[in-house]
Design a binder for these strands. Sequence first.
DNA 1: TAGAGCCTGGACAACGTTGTCAGGCTCGGG
DNA 2: CCCGAGCCTGACAACGTTGTCCAGGCTCTA
Lengths: 374, 374
Amino acid sequence: MLDATSSYNPMDLRIPVADRTGHRTVPETTRRSDRIPGTRYGNRPTMKDVAARAGVGLKTVSRVVNGEPGVTPETERRVQEAIEALGFRRNDSARVLRKGRTASIGLVLEDLADPFYGPLSRAVEEVARAHGALLINGSSAEDADREQELVLALCARRVDGLVVIPAGGDHRYLEPELKAGVATVFVDRPAGHIDVDVVVSDNFGGARDGVSHLLAHGHRRIGFIGDMPRIHTAAERLRGYRTAMEDAGIAVEDAWMSLGVTDPERVRRAAEEMLSGPEPVTAIFTGNNRVTVTVIRVLAGHTRQVALVGFDDIELADLLQPGVTVVAQDAAALGRTAAERLFRQLDGTLLAPERIELPTRLITRGSGELPPAD
Amino acid sequence: MLDATSSYNPMDLRIPVADRTGHRTVPETTRRSDRIPGTRYGNRPTMKDVAARAGVGLKTVSRVVNGEPGVTPETERRVQEAIEALGFRRNDSARVLRKGRTASIGLVLEDLADPFYGPLSRAVEEVARAHGALLINGSSAEDADREQELVLALCARRVDGLVVIPAGGDHRYLEPELKAGVATVFVDRPAGHIDVDVVVSDNFGGARDGVSHLLAHGHRRIGFIGDMPRIHTAAERLRGYRTAMEDAGIAVEDAWMSLGVTDPERVRRAAEEMLSGPEPVTAIFTGNNRVTVTVIRVLAGHTRQVALVGFDDIELADLLQPGVTVVAQDAAALGRTAAERLFRQLDGTLLAPERIELPTRLITRGSGELPPAD
DNA sequence: TAGAGCCTGGACAACGTTGTCAGGCTCGGG
DNA sequence: CCCGAGCCTGACAACGTTGTCCAGGCTCTA
């Protein structure tokens, strides 16, 4: 675990989930001595200091800093000089306190390091930037408590809006925030027990199409390896798989399906099992990018050709032998759509919450077109 | 361009770079009507409201919310009830204003969507979390003005510290911030004209080792394709290349080196040129992950075998034919090291700024071991 | 030249929280 | 019965900024 024993810990984020108020009940641990009275903000100059130095009133400085009219060029020059000389920088905390808007939005996702979330996050950031807002983000690590903790910490900072890729299934804890006017959009997965905007991919349809593609190339025994079933996307993709199979008149066997953590070891075992025995699968549909990568590795170690279609595109998929056929979703579009909706909520131009579903796209590259090898 | 014509734009971040005060001189565009006087924060309850409802004093509520001692269980219960009933959430802006610390750090990087920065960002976040701080981040898109704009916006929010992957080369604009005690660490690339902590990879040594590897396999005509020379990492890697070549007694020809944007089209052209003509290169050293990916695509279209070593590891590199030999740097370690140093600055346990260089690792997978094919 | 109107600048309160400090209560002992 | 000690509680000021409002000086016109 990381070292957190040092003395910097100005505001502990770890909120006991039982109480939802954003406060802490645990006693303080060692912490940095409080600010010496009289020193403000590491001695940062304030508007008062600037005013004193420029020989003008406080409000005049405010006017200059905010580009408000009603200041003579000469006065403005004097103020600017003082600002430069003192290295003054407006304190946005105070500004926020006064104005009520923070010009920042929060993004809670599963893992910033996942190649799927990078572009999504970037897209949200671009939209935020276009609206003059900053992005604060945090990773939930697929842990519902941590998600709630993060969301509430963001609310305590009074973000104007939240984009959430939920880890948990119950979001009633957000009700007071919604009532208070925090714009909220869920992405990638729906919200539980609250009525908010949701932007998702067509996970069901995408998976069905991907599996149908395998069926069209003659496969009957097709395996499915996916994420934990409590995750909505995983469940939907499994449903797509089952539907495609049923529509083709195939009775799905339990041994063909494996759901669980996307840890390489688990996935590897699942794949090996499906590929062994008297009646091994001849094709595998993988439920997300991490699973796909691991299965590619497994298949590379086998001599028998096994067809593969994966959910989520992966880099270099086209250069492998054979190229990896995938059901691609547009992560950037998910993020962009969600963020745009968020700002429309803030505009007031948006009325009832809606569920938006973005299409997926089957990209054929070879691995899905292999015929059954038995 | 993104739509920013809507009315939500509470605090424009776009600061004219000429003036460094965090204020705006452009006249206001349309903007949301100011808060109706009397309504506070979308009618969010405050401690005062909680106090009134619980029939206690303001400070008692504060004590309960912050888990301070000196409140009877009965009083605490009443306060908790009121908190629950009103959906109260502490306003951290006010808290920050009072306490002087924001418990947040800023991260400015080039592009969140780049697979190199995802893990770095995540590592910074983990360290921040361990110290009870939130992460605010922004992408500079390799634009110096945008970097400055972002950094200053973060400073206006009074982040406690900054982790910066610089785009620009001059950071004197940070001097007032440093003086004011904003902890600062530069990562991946050094800072310009200011004395701060820097954490970088051994770009020079890594590139030299990678090129030496090619030399050891008999190559003499080795090409180098890298990022723009004004980017420190690109320049260092080029220097590593030249040093390795010179140490081997080879006079580097201009036609072997190509530096510029990592746009696939430019890289593709550069590679094609090196591979054509009477004396084509027999091996290529690529300066970063994006270049490597494009060059792999180019080489896949050629029949002649060309050796390749790339800077930065890339996913699935082991599964290509041949596997891609790379000089890997540890993005997560860069982020972790930088963030840990940042918090040590905030602790006060850190003295003089330092430059930390992390080693790189040559991972051989085949592409670098191909013999010259002429 | 007086009065009206405009322009500039500044005093003041408020935003929601926390640190300081003092007052009131209970309880036990003299 | 009174007093002091110790524990709870709350009044108040301050953090830095911005919106409101008013004062004073200027220009322009009658």
